[in-house]
Design a protein around this nucleic acid. Structure first.
Length: 214
DNA sequence: CAAGAGATCATCT
DNA sequence: GATGATCTCTTGA
């Protein structure tokens, strides 16, 4: 397994979205904002505190004409990073309480991104998990829920996802994912998007129990 | 179980 | 001043 390079994201957004399924979102918490609640005394060896989550559901927000995308309203301070380099993290705050994690795709000036909607915890340093383990393990089945568990907020906005140094990166799949295993359906919560609301730009791994909605 | 409302505020008009 | 790439809880059939 290796870190997906910036070039991975510099491709068609629908392609990137589907290719991200089955890949691993890995987080290396700093001492102040651990991805997984830690128990016991603080430990210097943070490398052993990484947590790895399989990406099981995503949505594509594709270009300036996509009426469901923030970018359809033109460039603003909030959506600025969508117009920039691929492989950059776009985090925004919505509904007064939720953070959303996206990865910017395609070349500069083409505003697009993939929203990470659900992940499944696959490995962590088990003995450091607190009594809250049940909630931690099972509550990553929604875009706002996973950012809460991972403690992802606007500190990550604008940072590259293709470098390890910021503590959040994505690694390649460890097994094949056939096209027949990918469900392609409409995006959630975009009824306002006119003809774009019917685009089947939401993708998830069929049968995965962490998918936000079947 | 499905439908509806409330929470809560940054961002945009 | 209105709204939202959501979630949780309540209501009621």
């Amino acid at each position: 397994m290796k870190i997906l390079p910036q070039s991975f994201y510099n491709r068609n957004t629908l392609r990137v979205a589907q290719d991200l399924l089955g890949c691993f979102l890995v987080i290396l918490p700093d001492g102040k904002s651990p991805a997984i609640p830690l128990s016991g005394r603080a430990h210097a060896n943070s490398a052993k505190r990484i947590s790895k989550f399989k990406i099981v559901e995503v949505e594509a927000y594709n270009g300036p004409n996509d009426l469901a995308s923030h970018a359809s309203q033109g460039r603003t301070e909030r959506n600025n990073v969508m117009f920039g380099e691929p492989g950059i993290i776009y985090v925004y705050f919505t509904y007064g309480m939720h953070y959303m994690l996206n990865i910017v795709t395609e070349g500069k000036e083409y505003p697009a991104a993939v929203l990470i909607r659900a992940v499944e915890l696959v490995s962590h340093n088990a003995y450091r998990i607190t009594h809250n383990v049940e909630r931690t393990v099972y509550n990553t089945n929604g875009p706002a829920k996973l950012t809460k568990i991972l403690r992802i907020d606007k500190r990550f906005n604008g940072l590259p996802i293709y470098l390890k140094k910021y503590g959040l990166w994505i690694e390649s799949r460890d097994e094949e994912l056939k096209d027949s295993q990918i469900k392609k359906t409409t995006r959630v919560g975009v009824d306002y998007a006119g003809r774009y609301k019917n685009k089947k730009w939401r993708f998830y791994i069929k049968g995965n129990e962490f998918v936000s909605k079947k």
